[in-house]
Simulated scan of single mutants.
Amino acid sequence: MDLPALLTRLHAIRDANAWRRYHNPKNLAMAASVEMAELVEIFQWKSDAEARALSAAEREHAGQEIADVLLYLLQLGNELELDVEQAVLAKLADNERRFLP
């Protein structure tokens, strides 16, 4: 996944719609949370088995919500001047150190 290219595309959408003033860290974190809630809603009241056997429409919807969360988080990382790829790799290495034998 080419994160800089994704950010370029996201910024083009943002700028074409004059949304820059709304894309501060607080609003982006809140937007990611709202999208995460929409993802959670897909699984609400489902058993473990049902959650693993989503219909094609539910799987597509889940993919859309996962993408929304990811895109907002990429924008948040950018606004905080974080290297998101490096942050992910560092966190993964930390988890490996902590949780692998």
Rank of each mutant, 00 (worst) to 15 (best):
A93R: 05
T8H: 07
L6C: 12
E79T: 10
A12I: 02
F43I: 00
I42P: 01
E79H: 13
M36V: 02
Q64S: 06
D15M: 04
W45Q: 03
A18I: 08
R20M: 01
E41T: 07
R98H: 07
V88F: 06
I42S: 00
L6Q: 13
L89M: 11
M36T: 14
H23N: 11
V88Y: 09
Y22T: 08
V69T: 03
M30H: 12
L73F: 02
F99Q: 11
S47Y: 00
L10Q: 13
G77T: 00
L100C: 06
N24T: 14
A62C: 12
E79Q: 14
D48E: 11
I66E: 13
E81A: 15
A5T: 03
R98N: 03
N17D: 03
L80D: 04
E79Y: 05
L100W: 06
L73V: 02
H11M: 04
G63R: 15
A18V: 04
L10E: 12
K26D: 11
A29S: 10
A49R: 15
R59P: 01
N27G: 08
M30N: 12
A93P: 05
A31N: 11
A32K: 12
R9P: 01
N24L: 10
L7I: 09
I66G: 02
Q64F: 11
A90S: 10
V69L: 02
P101H: 01
L82T: 00
A32F: 14
D15P: 03
A5M: 00
L89D: 13
R52F: 07
A37Y: 14
L92S: 08
A57P: 03
D68T: 01
V88R: 14
V34H: 12
A32R: 07
A62P: 10
L73I: 01
A31Y: 02
E60L: 10
L76G: 10
L80G: 06
N27Q: 13
I66L: 15
L89H: 11
F43M: 01
K91L: 09
L7Q: 03
A16D: 15
A29Q: 13
L7N: 08
F43H: 06
A57Q: 08
G63I: 15
N78Q: 10
E96W: 02
A18P: 06
A57W: 06
A16N: 15
M30Y: 14
A53W: 14
A53T: 10
Q64V: 04
E35C: 01
L28Y: 15
N95H: 07
N17C: 02
E38K: 00
N17Q: 12
A18R: 14
E81R: 10
V88E: 11
P25Q: 08
R9Y: 02
R97S: 03
G63W: 13
L7A: 00
A49V: 08
E58A: 02
A31T: 09
L73P: 06
N27L: 05
L74T: 00
